[in-house]
Amino acid sequence: MTHHLDGNVLAGALSEVFRSDVTAARGRCGGCGRTAPIAEAMVWTDAPGLVARCASCDRVLATVVDTGDRVILSLAGLSAVELRR
């Protein structure tokens, strides 16, 4: 049985990349248009990287691949991310 966690599990990996806590940020799904905090995404962790999917339509919103000396981040499935100052 494969399982997923919520978007809070992304906090550690993304804290290396962003100044603010991105899991609290709102993101817009590039597929269905749902706008919700990143923390509400479904995140698959038993994979070669972290895979965050839209809670409404399953579209891949973001991926994080940790190579050891690099972090390769994709936010390609998000049409916009709202970061609070």
Binding site: T2, W44, D46, A47, P48, V51, R53, D58, V60
Partner: peptide, 9 residues
Amino acid sequence: WPVLSAGPT
């Protein structure tokens, strides 16, 4: 046999 999955089965 570890199970790896990037999404719903």
